[in-house]
Design a protein around this nucleic acid. Sequence first.
DNA 1: ACTTGGCACTCGCCGTCATGGAGTGCCAGA
DNA 2: TCTGGCACTCCATGACGGCGAGTGCCAAGT
Lengths: 343, 343
Amino acid sequence: MQEERRLAVLRAIVQDYVATHEPVGSKTLVERHNLGVSPATIRNDMAALEEEGYIAQPHTSAGRVPTDLGYRLFVDRLSEIKPLSSPERRAIQRFLDEAIDLDDVMARTVRLLAQITQQTALVQYPSLTRSTIRHIELVPISSTRVMIVVITDTGRVEQRTVECTQPVEESTVGDLRSRLGVALAGRSFAEAPEALADIEEPFSAEDRSLVRIVVSHLLEAMTERTDERVMMSGTAHLARYGQAFPLAIQPVLEALEEQVVLMRLLGEATTQPGVMVRIGRENPVEGLEATSVITARYAHGEQAVASLGVVGPTHMDYPGTMASVHAVASYVSRILDEQQGSR
Amino acid sequence: MQEERRLAVLRAIVQDYVATHEPVGSKTLVERHNLGVSPATIRNDMAALEEEGYIAQPHTSAGRVPTDLGYRLFVDRLSEIKPLSSPERRAIQRFLDEAIDLDDVMARTVRLLAQITQQTALVQYPSLTRSTIRHIELVPISSTRVMIVVITDTGRVEQRTVECTQPVEESTVGDLRSRLGVALAGRSFAEAPEALADIEEPFSAEDRSLVRIVVSHLLEAMTERTDERVMMSGTAHLARYGQAFPLAIQPVLEALEEQVVLMRLLGEATTQPGVMVRIGRENPVEGLEATSVITARYAHGEQAVASLGVVGPTHMDYPGTMASVHAVASYVSRILDEQQGSR
DNA sequence: ACTTGGCACTCGCCGTCATGGAGTGCCAGA
DNA sequence: TCTGGCACTCCATGACGGCGAGTGCCAAGT
């Protein structure tokens, strides 16, 4: 009985604090939410909640503020993802439908997500390892330089310029191009090393150095740089919270400029279904102790491809943000499937 | 005579204010710089400078602070671009030399610039209108979808997916690809419309709808999206200045997220040689009234291609920043020329 | 066994006030 | 034209005190 009310109190505290950004006291709590009890009772509950580590007071005789643990409990047990209204859904879909290519889909997605959540949004480009190769192009740039272009079925284009030690023949490049095409078309990135094992076989000894250089760069481009690109939008929202707040934005901005950090934030979400929430210190990243990260993966076809999400202060609207992230992720999945015609 | 000293005083004020970020008074001024006169004399000069609009006082009986006009005079007449030290130059060159492709050059440049200026850096991708077409690729993605890929001699790749109203034949696509290749290879983007005027001629009536759609998208991609991409780095530096400063970062971050704004900041610099400085309200952009923008164009071959620069508070180290921007721009020019083999 | 009203207590917030000091403008004299 | 002196202006700082929101605890009520 009391246990149940205690949780209701925690929920109320989180909701109030998120709304007002001010420590919430027992009196205002009973006024705003109609729990049918007196402030004194609430105070007892609050003392218990504080004991258990779910809330804290900034200083004696101030209201209570949820701790990371409190938000965690709130997210896990006290809130439901509230679905978006259907006009919202339609607006999302319409906006994303206008995208003209993959870059545009990504750009629109990240801006949209930042806009509807009023937070900083992140979107990872579709993973390459899981996509299949649609086309390979080799373009001679100068006598000793060749550009490699890889086009995948997700509509992504990878490019790389390689420098050769000696001048290369146009015809050799053409030959290599067609052989690469045959060997790789329809294969996934993961299969590439295997498929290229015998590729240098038919070439003359002198051409093999070219082949080896191109192939090694190609493999490198497909493995090493996989998943690397992340777009970000809405960093200005970080500055919205009165500057006094325990959200010093400098470390946050610094952290978000590191590719490594972004990948760590988004990477894990790719392995999990549903919406993932990491609160405050749960984040494995220095500088983000005062922020929460909400992510979801999006899919292309049946395979998980990449993820997207938002970063905001721990005192955020979790249900709303989770709903938005979820919705955007699923619409992006749909758009990718439609646009790139999987077969 | 007095005129000369007045300018020396202004220079000293700017230097001190940039160093300390505090209004500077007559006494501290004679102490730090050895102007051979008494504080009282300086006060007279300051009164005159204030009269002319070069400096201002935040409130009566505080020190003086340079105005936008004061910085302008300082930049135009009172400072020289101090060249970077040669270790610095070497470090820049070494760092940029390691870049493996155009994306990498851009990414490294923007990070480098942010790092050495300790400010927010912007780098615009090389302009397309001025670059020439190296290769055109058409890739059937599904029965009704075709992806267009354009590769330029600056190493840039533009891509776009087009949807056709009816299924297209593989052979038609192949035919169109080779004709496009012939018509466009070696041409500049500006010449493209002309070169494509007669392209649909040889095609049968039923194929012409495909041709028209592809060509129109191609032209659109080449004109409309030209110059669009800008990379940014070092936004965290904006937060470094104690939050109290007249640099509220939210409007700045908001402005910097608008492509249009970025293009307006960088675009103009492309038309001018040398380093361009816009101070405070000289900026044609809302939200950047308290910031200065320092830009320089970089070139590829003999043609101007695009520009790069930094954004920071008006009280910045102009000579140092100008030197850095200038140096980075010239190194980028060199790298591009070397890497993409101009012929 | 909970809940509730009462009560004393804590402590941050805010306005007032006084003080000190940095800086200014102006004037008279060199 | 420069300089020293002087009166004046304000900002910053710190001390002080009252206010009020909020708490913890206890004794009484249901």
